[in-house]
């Protein structure tokens, strides 16, 4: 077993203190150690975006992040996004535009879209497509997800 390191951070607004192996991914810490399973494993290589979380407000692939790097930071997962009613507009848009099918990519899409809308509150279609280029979806063909994020940002195109 690798060296254990104790870290403390905020997860969805609440303080967490945890001892984790130095080589562990933030994704594995969330899912396996803290049992916060909304964040998904899709590839483990930063290619699919299913594991997207916010760290100090920036979206990152939690599968590429060393868990130890979470020390002192603020993490927001899909559960944290959903806990804030401000984000209902985005979630409702995904539901109403048909942006959800099997739903496995959805947590990553929600978190990434949240980051995108924080950065560009009224994104155009191109910005949304580029903003979601790191999130793979095998069901929807993306159009309805892009529609939803545009809709949540108040633009139809």
């Amino acid at each position: 077993m690798s060296l254990a390191v104790e870290i403390a951070f905020k997860l969805n607004g609440s303080p967490v203190r945890v001892s984790i192996p130095a080589t562990m991914t933030a994704l594995s810490m969330l899912r396996d150690q803290l049992n916060v399973t909304g964040t998904k494993y899709g590839c483990g290589e930063g290619e699919c975006g299913a594991c997207t979380i916010l760290v100090d407000g920036l979206s990152v692939n939690s599968c590429l992040m060393f868990a130890v790097e979470c020390d002192g930071r603020e993490l927001t997962t899909v559960e944290g996004v959903a806990a804030n009613p401000v984000n209902d507009r985005l979630r409702d848009a995904l539901v109403e535009h048909g942006g959800v099918q099997c739903g496995f990519c959805t947590p990553g899409m929600v978190v990434q879209s949240k980051w995108l809308l924080d950065k560009h509150p009224h994104p155009d279609r191109h910005q949304v497509e580029r903003g979601l280029e790191g999130n793979l979806c095998r069901c929807t063909g993306y159009k309805k997800i892009v529609d939803a994020v545009c809709g949540a940002g108040g633009s139809n195109e």
Binding site: T37, G38, T39, T77, V78, E79, A82, R91, L94, V95, E96, G98, G99, V100, Q101, G103, T106, P107, V110
Partner: peptide, 12 residues
């Protein structure tokens, strides 16, 4: 809308 979509967008 898909019936299970709200839970899916919450990561539940």
């Amino acid at each position: 809308p898909k019936m299970d979509a709200p839970e899916k967008t919450a990561g539940k």
